[in-house]
Design a protein around this nucleic acid. Sequence first.
RNA 1: GCCCUCGUAGUUCAAUGGAUAGAACAAGUGCCUCCUAAGCAUUAGAUGCAGGUUCGAUUCCUGCCGAGGGUACCA
Length: 545
Amino acid sequence: MMIEIKNSIIKSVNDVLSALSYPEKDYTLTPPKKSKFGDLSSNIALLLAKDLKRSPMDIAKLIADKLKSDFNENISNISVTNPGFINFKINDDYFRSQIKLILNSSSQYGKGNIGNSKTANVEFVSANPTGPLTVGHGRNAILGDTVSNILEWQGYEVTREYYFNNAGRQMRILAESVEARYFELLGEDLNMPQDGYQGDYIIKIAQNILDVEGKELEHGTDIFKVTAEETMFNKIKNSLKNLEIYFDQFTNEKTFYENGDIDTFMNELRDKDLIYEKENATWFKASSLGKTQDKVYIKSSGEPTYRVPDTAYHRDKIKRDYDLIIDVFGADHADAYPDVIAALEALGHNTNHIKILIYQFVTLLRDGQKVKMSTRKADFVSLDDLIDQVGIDVVRYFFIMRSMNSHLDFDLDLASDQSDKNPVYYLQYAHARICNIISRANDLEFALDDGFDPSYLRHDEELNLLKYMVRFPEFVNIAYENLEPQNIANYLQELSARFHKFYNSCRVITDNMELSKSRLAIVKAAKIILANGFNILGISAPERM
RNA sequence: GCCCUCGUAGUUCAAUGGAUAGAACAAGUGCCUCCUAAGCAUUAGAUGCAGGUUCGAUUCCUGCCGAGGGUACCA
C-alpha cells in the first residue's frame, strides 16, 4: 500500500532531521497536483527556513542529498524544486505490483479498519409524516445513507435510524386537516384548522377513511390521526425504497413519554436547578451553561417543545452505547442541536462522539424563479416525481457530488435535460466500456488464469491511470475523516477521466497476447475500483449503456 | 440587530495553507475503415470588495457588500 512507502519516507526524513539537529515540524508528504513534481512531495524545507535563517532551497538540497545516501528501494528519484519542495518519484514497478493486490482484494479493495468492532448510529431523514418527502428531504436522505456507507467501509456496524415526532402539534394539525376533509366529503362546510395541510393527499386519505370506515365517524376520533400517520409513513418508506434506502430502526417521540424517560430527564434537570417557570411556561436555563439565551421547554399551552423529546431521544442513543452518533440536519435545525448537547452535558454525558452534519438547503428554480417549498401549503416538488423524471443514479449523484455546505441550485426545468448530461454517466460509461472489453476478451478466449506480466505496462496513460487507482483507499479514508461523500465523487470523476484517456490511446485487445493480458488486468482492476466507489455512493455499475 | 453557512469561468459546482485554481453544461475547432463518440483532443473564460497573518491564502483572521437559514413558547 501507498501508506507503507509514505511511512518509510517519513522515517527517513525524520532520521535526517535529527542527524542535522533540526527542530521538529508538522510537515506534509502528499501527492502533488502535477505529475512532473513526482509522486510525493514535502514542504519540510519551507517550514524550516525561518528557524534556520537559511533559504528553503538550500535546506531542501541538503536534506535531499542526505536522503539520497540512504535510498529506499521503492524510490527512484529525489529532486528539489522551487520554492523549496522535496519531491520523491516512486518506482513504476511498485505501482505495477499493485494490480495484483487490487484483483485479489476485489470488492474489499479500499476498505479500512478504523471502525472494526465499533458501532455507529446515523440518524437521518427524520421527516415527520405530515406529507410526502420533498426534493429537500432527498439531500438529507442521500447524504445520510452515503455517510452510513462510508462508515461501513471503515468497518463500523451502522444502525440507520429514522426519528419522528408523532405526539406534537404538527401531527395534531395533520389529523385535524384530514378530519376537516372527511366531513367536507360528507357535505359539511370545510373547517380547516389554522395552518392546516392543504395538499390533495389529505383529501385522498379522508376519502380512504370514508371508504373503509363509513360515514358514521365522530368528530375527534383517533382514526384520523392513526390513519394519516400510517398512510404517510407508508408513502415515505416507499419513496425511500425508490432510492434504495432502508432503515434499521424507526423511533418516535411517544416512546419517551410513555417509558418515563422525559419525566426522569426533566426531574434531573430540575435537581440541577436548570429548570424554572416563567410566564406560564417552563424554561431550560441554557444561559447558565454558556448559551446566549434560555429556551422554552414546556409551552404555556402545556405542550413540550421539540427540544424535550429530542434531548431524551439523544440520551437514549447515548445509553445504547454507540461509538459514534451522527445526526444529519438541514440548516434550519442548526440552532437547535447546541441546546440538546448542552443539556446532555449538564446531565454528565460525554457528547464528544456525537457529530452533527448540517447541510444547506436546495434552492429550487422553476421558470427561473425560486420556489419556496412548504409541506403545509402543498407547495413542493416530491422526491418521487424527481426520481421518476431522472432516475435514481442521477438523483443520488446530483446530491452527493456537492459539498453539504454548498447552497445548491436545482433547476427543475433543466432537470430532465441535464439528466442526459449528468456527470454520473461519465463514470458509469467508463465501467460499461470496461465490461465490454472484458466480454470481448472472453469471446476471444483470453485468459488471465495463467498470469500476466505487469512490466508490459509502460505507456504514459497506463501509469497515469494506475497511479490514481492506487489512491482509492486514501480517498475513502479522507471521505471518512471529513464525512464528506463528495470526496469520493470527485475521485471517481478523475479516475474515469484517466480511464477514458487510457482507452483512447491504448487498445486492450491486440495481436500481442502478453500486452493484452496485462492491459486486461489493469482494466479489470479499474473496474473493481469503479464498482467499489459506486457501491459507496449507492449508484449502479452498468455492464452496458 | 445578533448567530450559522455560502460568495470561484456566461451557468451549476470542485480544490488536506502549497507549485500553472480544476470539471461539467453553454460557445468555437478537430477526431469514428480501430475493444461503445454517453468518448478523446483543442480554443476562450473565474477566486465579491478592502485590509491582515504567512516563505506561500480560494482556504485562516477583521471589516464591508451580497445570498440562504436561524433568532426565546413551529420542528
